[in-house]
Amino acid sequence: MSKLEIKDKQVVVPGEMLAEGMDYLPGFGTYRDKDKIIANRLGIADIQGRALKIIPLSGRYIPKNNDVVIGKVFDITFSGWRLDINSAYSGMLILKDATTEYIARGADLTQYYSLGDYLVCKITNVTSQKLVDLSMKGPGLKKLGKGRIISVNPHKVPRIIGKQGSMVNMIKNLTKCWVIVGQNGLIWLQGKPSEEVIAIKAIRKIESESHLPGLTERIKAFLESIVSDKSKKQDTTKQDATKQDTKPDKRPDTKPEGESQ
């Protein structure tokens, strides 16, 4: 008789026995040793019928085909650009896939993408030796303008995006920021500086609490409380400013940021 040693969604560590017996099948992050199934990664156990797998909680990004990632140009070659994609491996964006514009022979490639530019691009191929091909042809793929880039744990990206983008849309709506989430754990935000700070706080909260149940409700409550606090404070500071009429060049929206730290 097969016996399950763990509960669904429990945190498991390498070397921990998940099940005994041949009725269960080892999935991602597990291996079979005779009749036992043992975890070989730190993560959350996921039981799907007879299959046992582990959803990792930590680790660097490993490039995967069809992922949309945010990369930073760090080298320009004869035939394209080399991008740092927050991984052990860099991505190659060749001329053909870089833009729909015509690029003349011998043109200065920095006028398209220069060193240090951040690009949203898609991974089109990953070889066995982890050579990564990138493309800029597709909806939403573009060069990023001003804004902030933050780095998060790449394994938390699905939680930050949510089901059909529900979580990231909530952050966008409540903070009025533009947000682009790369699968490699880089996130670009643009909005009012004070709103950007709130969005970043919400993302950090998701990152640290994503393995606990009821995440969406907690993040919603968190964002709403900050946003309503902020609007109240802004109202009072505006009233004070009109009453006393002192320090006219002080920006009221910078105040709540410092206080909430």
Partner: peptide
Amino acid sequence: LADAGLSMKDL
């Protein structure tokens, strides 16, 4: 190493 998310048979 386990905390870094690497694949390990055991600690």
